[in-house]
Design a protein around this nucleic acid. Structure first.
Length: 422
RNA sequence: GGAGAGGUGGCCGAGCAGGUCGAAGGCGGCGGUUUGCUAAACCGUUGUAGAGGCCAAAACCUCUACCCAGGGUUCGAAUCCCUGCCUCUCCGCCA
């Protein structure tokens, strides 16, 4: 959510942001129209409330002195009725204004490259070189099938398309990765969290999934809960409606969770394999920081995610999303893309974002500076470190051998308890 | 699932036969007095948000709202009524 004052007083800036993001500008006009009416009405109502409060005081005095208060009582009744009537309209306006404000995306940071879609994302750096294999590389699903470590057919019998069933060394690899990542992240000062996987509407609104992206979420019927699409949701909402001390910051969290996504609108995309699933595992890192630190923290957070790939020796590149590809809540995002020999291309394995105060304002997460009056919104950041399913894909495809076996990266062997999958 | 108790400011905790209650008291925080330093004691101060006064900000002032949330009764609600959410205790059930 943007600051109402910025939208109101710095409209040009918001307009430019919407244009860069290829958004329809009409949401801005709609909001301003409602907001102006709301403010005008609020002023009127507050004035009337003041009158009412004063008269009520007078009545109280008369009552105490046991005097009659018939005429003044009638006047009070009139004012009260007037207020009640106007308040109904105000409530409607408040709801509408809030809704409009909630569907306006964050303003991209000045360093975000301009561009209309993913084709205009900018490569920032590259690590490692795509390996030249002296045999035709297999897709991960073929490798997995060969070893009997992922069973897509039975998964679709049990649940449906876009689900997977890990077995034996496949299940163990998944578990080894989640432990490896959590252990590494916690060694860097991230506090481990194991959060609820079902959350309420307020939490989804706090991080920006709702109200705009209802269609991308799974929801339970009765009682109503939303299944988290990422650990970002429950972990960021840990501090919803809280005022933190300056000395508490920065706060670093890491959490393993399954993630649930409808993947509506991605029909026909990545229909085979582990790349795009309704349920997948991910280790996430989340930060709450002071505003002046958030961009250096984004660099550090991205480096922490990259570190995992480096330890495994998986080639990757880091790209900066352009304005047209940037997520709704983000001010700036780096995607980390890992090289997949089976597809002969880089695929996203992590997404690291600075939301500035966009989520903090929605979720009402503030902090108090030492010796200063008032509160400020914190800045929130998060990134995958890493998406586990896709890491499995990367390992299977990058470390497949001519004889069909898969060599486990050295850094992972202790957690895996094996050197190779044969 | 059944029965009961409760949700008040950063925390604890009064108020709850409706009016001077944004709310006693304590703790904590901040400022000061005292002091060689620390501690203690004493004095003072200390919520959040919105609108307006000037709007380029800060300070200051005024008003409005907020005692879990949402409705209702009333001239007036922390206080009365209804609904929801959450917490605790006991019983039942369960991994």
């Amino acid at each position: 959510m943007l600051d109402v004052k910025i939208v109101r007083e710095n409209t040009a800036r918001v307009e430019e942001s919407l244009r860069k993001r290829n958004y329809d500008l009409s949401i801005l006009d709609r909001f301003l129209k409602i907001e102006n009416e709301r403010r005008e009405l609020l002023r009127l109502i507050e004035e009337k409330r003041e009158q009412r409060n004063k008269i009520s005081q007078e009545i109280a005095i008369l009552k105490r002195e046991k005097k009659a208060a018939v005429s003044i009582l009638a006047e009070a009744k009139n004012i009260s009725d007037f207020i009640t009537e106007k308040e109904e309209r105000l409530k409607v306006l408040e709801e509408e204004a809030r809704h409009e404000l909630l569907i306006i995306p964050n303003i991209p940071h000045e360093s975000v490259p301009a561009g209309k879609d993913e084709a205009e994302n900018v490569e920032i750096r590259k690590w490692g070189a795509p390996k030249e294999l002296d045999f035709p590389p297999l897709n991960h699903w073929d490798i997995a099938e060969m070893h009997g470590i992922i069973d897509f057919d039975r998964a679709s019998k049990i649940a449906g398309a876009r689900f997977s069933l890990m077995k034996g060394m496949g299940a163990k690899l998944e578990r080894a990765l989640m432990n490896f990542m959590l252990d590494l992240n916690t060694s860097k000062g991230y506090k481990e969290i194991l959060p609820p996987l079902l959350v309420n509407r307020e939490s989804m609104t706090g991080t920006g999934q709702l109200p705009k992206f209802e269609m991308e979420l799974f929801r339970t019927a009765d009682p109503e809960f939303y299944l988290i699409p990422t650990a970002e949701v429950p972990v960021t909402n840990i501090h919803r409606d809280e005022i933190l001390n300056e000395s508490d910051l920065p706060i670093y969290y890491t959490a393993y969770t399954p993630c649930f996504r409808r993947e509506a609108g991605s029909y026909g995309k990545d229909t085979r394999g582990l790349i795009r699933q309704h349920q997948f595992n991910k280790v996430e890192i989340v930060k709450f920081v002071k505003p002046e630190d958030s961009y250096s923290e984004l660099e550090k957070l991205t480096n922490d995610a990259e570190d995992i790939l480096q330890r495994f020796g998986l080639p990757y590149r880091v790209i900066a999303l352009c304005t047209g590809d940037l997520g709704f809540s983000a001010a700036k995002t780096y995607d980390i893309e890992v090289w997949l020999p089976g597809q002969q291309r880089y695929r996203e394995i992590s997404s690291c974002s600075n939301f500035e105060d966009f989520q903090a304002r929605r979720a009402n997460i503030r902090f108090k500076r030492e010796g200063k009056k008032g509160t400020e919104f914190v800045h929130t950041l998060n990134g995958s470190a890493l998406a586990i399913g896709r890491t499995v894909v990367a390992i299977l495809e990058n470390f497949q051998q001519k004889d069909g076996s898969i060599v486990i990266p050295e850094a992972l062997r202790e957690h895996m308890g094996a050197e190779v999958i044969k």
